[in-house]
């Protein structure tokens, strides 16, 4: 600004302009703050959703448990909330949920793990590039379509093998549910396996191990926490799955652990009640919130377990 001395009028105008523009603009600052507050509100909204879910479920369940003692809810062996002789044993619905989930996991965990190991340790770049989108599509099919498939395609085939199988059964629903869950298990496990540093594999190969030996004895142990959390996500999906069971497993409450029988699950019971015309505020209406709360607590427990496993057993490289 030494040149400004020779031309005072010009420098004065520039100086004024600069200082004017450099002065802290309150409006600009306020605008920034307002935008930040709005963005924060959007992020905090997700917390509000959780609070709302817990509030709604607990509020309606609270009314329900005023009428039905908790011990009946947990230990009764009948679930007939809509009959005159009403029983509220959640165990009945739980047995359906557990049986169908077990069938699904028997399919999804071995297949998902094998696919993950194959894609991460064996398959070439080309195979992986083609297979992964396909698996994603498998996970993107609407569950109602899977339900239709279980009911009209898989059940008749199973009936040819095992003629006593009823038209609605937990087996066929569980098998299809397993196929549906494969992509979740496979893609999360594969991510965990690929995160294992290359040096570990190279060390293993240098000792003369084959690909399979490396995959099973080096990569899998190193990726255990990720694989376990993939399994837990799979379990949580299976427990919360609704439409496949509502369509293909029948909706009769049935205390059984035999997959070859029809059965209702927590989720399909909620669908069944919602399809009917239950008045708002009736005990039948409240049962679905009690059932929903049970479901939420189960999935929450699995999510926390998965979170804890990831933290606790994560190998840090």
């Amino acid at each position: 600004m030494s040149a400004s001395a020779s031309a005072p009028p010009l420098s004065a105008s520039i100086g004024a302009g600069i200082s004017d523009r450099l002065s802290k603009k309150a409006s600009r600052h306020v605008k920034e703050r307002i935008i930040e507050a709005m963005l924060f509100a959007a992020a905090a909204f997700s917390v509000f959703v959780t609070v709302a879910i817990v509030y709604v479920l607990v509020k309606e369940s609270w009314v329900f448990f005023q009428t039905v003692p908790l011990s009946d809810f947990l230990f009764d062996t009948q679930w007939t909330p809509l009959f005159d002789d009403a029983h509220y044993g959640i165990m009945v619905l739980l047995s359906g949920t557990l049986t169908s989930s077990a069938v699904a996991l028997v399919v999804a965990i071995p297949l998902g793990t094998i696919i993950a190991l194959y894609l991460s340790e064996f398959a070439g770049f080309k195979v992986r590039e083609i297979a992964k989108p396909f698996l994603e599509l498998l996970g993107g099919v609407p569950t109602i379509v899977y339900g239709y498939f279980a009911l009209t395609f898989l059940t008749p085939i199973l009936q040819k093998i095992y003629p006593d199988l009823p038209g609605f059964n937990l087996l066929s629903a569980g098998l299809v549910m397993g196929i549906m869950i494969i992509p979740y298990v496979a893609s999360l496990s594969e991510d965990a396996m690929r995160a294992v540093p290359m040096a570990l594999r190279e060390g293993s190969y240098a000792m003369g191990a084959t690909r399979l030996q490396t995959a099973l004895w080096v990569v899998t142990p190193a990726a255990t926490s990720g694989i376990a959390s993939a399994y837990i996500l799979g379990i949580s999906r299976a427990v919360g799955e609704t439409m496949i069971l509502a369509v293909a497993a029948g909706m009769q409450p049935n205390l059984t652990f035999n997959p070859a029988e029809p059965g209702a699950t927590i989720t399909s019971y909620i669908v069944q009640v919602a399809l009917g015309d239950l008045p708002h505020g009736s005990i039948g209406y409240q049962t679905i919130f009690a059932a929903g709360l049970t479901l939420l607590l189960m999935t929450l427990a699995f999510n926390l377990l998965g979170y804890w496993l990831r933290k606790r057993y994560r190998e840090v490289y």
């Binding site: 992020a43 905090a44 997700s46 917390v47 959703v49 959780t50 709302a52 879910i53 709604v56 479920l57 509020k59 309606e60 996500l233 949580s236 427990v239 919360g240 799955e241 609704t242 989720t267 909620i270 669908v271 919602a274 708002h280 679905i288 919130f289 929903g292 479901l295 939420l296 999935t299 929450l300 699995f302 999510n303 979170y307």
Partner: peptide
């Protein structure tokens, strides 16, 4: 931290539970 944990937790809630939320909150 709470917001982040909460979002990953929301992703794991079964869709039917959102239906129950909507039934209690939006519908009634």
């Amino acid at each position: 931290d709470i917001i982040e944990i909460n979002i990953s937790n929301l992703a794991g809630i079964p869709s039917i539970v959102y239906g129950l939320l909507a039934l209690g909150l939006f519908v009634y």
